[in-house]
């Protein structure tokens, strides 16, 4: 299925100037430094439409930073890159953000709010009806917990609520950080379904994990972050 850019006249949706054959994301010689500590160095990566990449790496190797970079939330200190047709650090980054979904390794939920209130906030900020947020919660199996405060939810439930946010947003670029931790078998299947949905719409996914087994079968290819660079990793069970 070719990549379908949302139409320019569709309210609340930003049209992209990205041609159909252009990659969803392209990073050329990217470096990211936090304070004076280099995190990524001279990193190259191409993420094509419909592609799912698994990113491996040890603790502190820069996997999460790579995701934040692709989410346009970190400015590269060197190198160039484009995400969904917009240059990183360029003027169009804010406009492209609603088409990106990031599920970090910690939940982005407001603990004092209920799961429904958290999702309603996202719906209101992105111009969607609250009903669609409720439907998303039902879809991830949290209809019964919709009125429970996020602070009293388990890690797995919070993860599912994050997935509901992804379902609601229908992103073209999905970034998942250690998504499988704390999820039961049903929820793991849900992750696969969400990833397949994004891929089916011509979008792309990046899954970060330090467990290669989790990514085998889901990702089209694997890369490993070593010394701040992305290196191809063979798809094998014993990839470690």
């Amino acid at each position: 299925m070719p990549h379908t850019a949302p139409s320019r006249d569709q309210p609340g949706v930003v049209a992209t100037t990205r041609p159909a054959d252009e990659p969803c994301a392209r990073l050329d010689g990217i470096a990211v430094t936090v304070g004076r500590t280099p995190i990524l160095r001279n990193l190259d990566l191409v993420l094509n439409a419909g592609e799912v990449i698994g990113v491996l790496g040890g603790n502190g190797s820069g996997k999460s930073t790579l995701l934040r970079l692709l989410a346009t939330l970190v400015r590269p200190s060197r190198g160039r890159g484009a995400v969904l047709g917009h240059e990183l650090g360029g003027p169009g980054t804010i406009a492209v953000r609603p088409r990106i979904a990031l599920v970090g390794h910690l939940p982005a939920l407001y603990p004092q709010l209920t799961l429904a209130e958290n999702l309603h906030l996202v719906a209101r900020l992105t111009g969607r009806e609250e009903r669609s947020a409720d439907r998303a919660l039902a879809l991830v199996g949290l209809a019964g917990a919709a009125h429970r405060r996020a602070e009293s939810c388990s890690q797995g439930m919070a993860r599912r609520a994050e997935l509901a946010r992804v379902v609601l947003a229908e992103p073209s670029l999905l970034l998942l950080d250690e998504i499988h931790s704390g999820l039961d078998r049903d929820a793991v299947e849900l992750v696969d379904e969400v990833v397949t949905g994004v891929r089916g719409r011509g979008g792309a996914c990046v899954l970060v994990s330090h467990e290669p087994d989790r990514l085998t079968g889901v990702a089209d290819r694997l890369v490993r972050i070593v010394d701040g660079r992305a290196r191809p990793e063979p798809q094998a069970v014993d990839a470690r």
Binding site: Q10, G12, V13, G127, R128, R135, L139, E170
Partner: peptide, 13 residues
């Protein structure tokens, strides 16, 4: 799931 139905105004946000 759903496309945005309306563009939220800055005030609404």
């Amino acid at each position: 799931m759903s496309r945005p139905t309306t563009t939220p105004t800055p005030l609404a946000r």
